[in-house]
C-alpha cells in the first residue's frame, strides 16, 4: 500500500517557510531541521468524513448564530467560493471552519485586549460544508483591522480565518481571506510570507456583484484550492 512519492504534495515554492523573519513569532516556533520525505499510506489518503448532521442550522450565519438581543454592528457581507483540488475538481462535503474579529477589530477571546469594543451579538465563528459543486456560502460582518505587536505600528489587514478539511489527511489547509484594495496588505508580514506574488494574490477575495443582494449585503468570492495525492477521488492507490 505504501507508495513512494517523488515530489511533495506541498508546493513549497508557493507556501510560506517555517522561519520568516518578518513574522517574529516564527523565530522560536518554526522547525529548523530538514523535513523527511513521507511516502503516502492509507493514513495520509483518508481523513475525517463530515456531513450535514455535524452542523447546526445557523452555523453558516455569523450574524445570527451568537446574537443575543439584536443584529451585530457592522457591514453585513456574504462570502461565497468554490473548493477544488489542483485538477480543478470540486471537493464535496469539505468542512470549512471560519473565525474573525468583529467590525471594530476585536476578537471574542480573553487574550485579545485591543482597546476596541466587543459586540454582544457577534462572537465571530461559523462552519459550513461545501455542496455537490464544491461551493460554500456564509453570511457575516466585515471584520475590522487591528493592531498587533510584531513591529512598530503593526496592523493586521481585515481578514477571515479559514480552516478546511478536504477529502484526505493530505488536503488539510488553514489560511486567511483578505479583502480587495486593502493598503495594509503590502505592509503585512503574514500575507507577505507567501513567497510567490500570484499565489499571494489568491488570498485576496474579489468583490462579487452577482452575489451582492440589493438593500441587504455586499458579496465577496474566495475560491480555495487544496493540495492532495492527485488521485481520482476515492480511488485507492495501486499496491
Amino acid at each position: 500500500m505504501t507508495v513512494s512519492n517523488t515530489a511533495s504534495v506541498i508546493d513549497w515554492a508557493r507556501q510560506p517557510s517555517y522561519l520568516y523573519e518578518g513574522y517574529k513569532s516564527t523565530v522560536k516556533r518554526g522547525p529548523t531541521k530538514p523535513l523527511i520525505p513521507m511516502a503516502h499510506t492509507l493514513s495520509e489518503l483518508t481523513g475525517p468524513v463530515y456531513g450535514h448532521d455535524d452542523l447546526n442550522p445557523l452555523d453558516n450565519d455569523l450574524t445570527k448564530n451568537s446574537a443575543i438581543n439584536g443584529e451585530p454592528i457592522g457591514e453585513r457581507i456574504i462570502v461565497v467560493g468554490r473548493v477544488t483540488d489542483e485538477a480543478d475538481r470540486p471537493v464535496r462535503n469539505a468542512l470549512l471552519e471560519v473565525w474573525q474579529a468583529n467590525a471594530t477589530g476585536r476578537y471574542w477571546h480573553k487574550v485579545d485586549q485591543h482597546d476596541a469594543p466587543l459586540d454582544p451579538n457577534f462572537r465571530g465563528a461559523g462552519r459550513v460544508l461545501t455542496d455537490e459543486n464544491g461551493e460554500y456560502r456564509f453570511v457575516t460582518i466585515k471584520p475590522g483591522a487591528y493592531p498587533w505587536r510584531n513591529h512598530h505600528n503593526a496592523w493586521r489587514p481585515p481578514h477571515i480565518h479559514f480552516s478546511i478539511f478536504g477529502r484526505e489527511f493530505l488536503s488539510r489547509l488553514v489560511t486567511q481571506m483578505y479583502f480587495p484594495g486593502d493598503p495594509l496588505l503590502a505592509l503585512d508580514p503574514i500575507y507577505n510570507s507567501i513567497p510567490d506574488e500570484s499565489a499571494r494574490q489568491l488570498l485576496v477575495s474579489t468583490y462579487a456583484h452577482d452575489i451582492t443582494t440589493p438593500e441587504w449585503a455586499l458579496g465577496y468570492r474566495f475560491n480555495i484550492v487544496l493540495c492532495g495525492s492527485r488521485e481520482t477521488p476515492f480511488e485507492t492507490k495501486e499496491v
Partner: peptide, 19 residues
C-alpha cells in the same frame, strides 16, 4: 494544475473557530 491556496497561521485566537 491550479495553484494551491497558500497557508497562513492559525494566529492566537483559533480556538474561537477550531476548538
Amino acid at each position: 494544475m491550479s495553484i494551491q491556496t497558500g497557508s497562513q497561521t492559525v494566529g492566537p485566537y483559533f480556538n474561537i473557530g477550531m476548538i
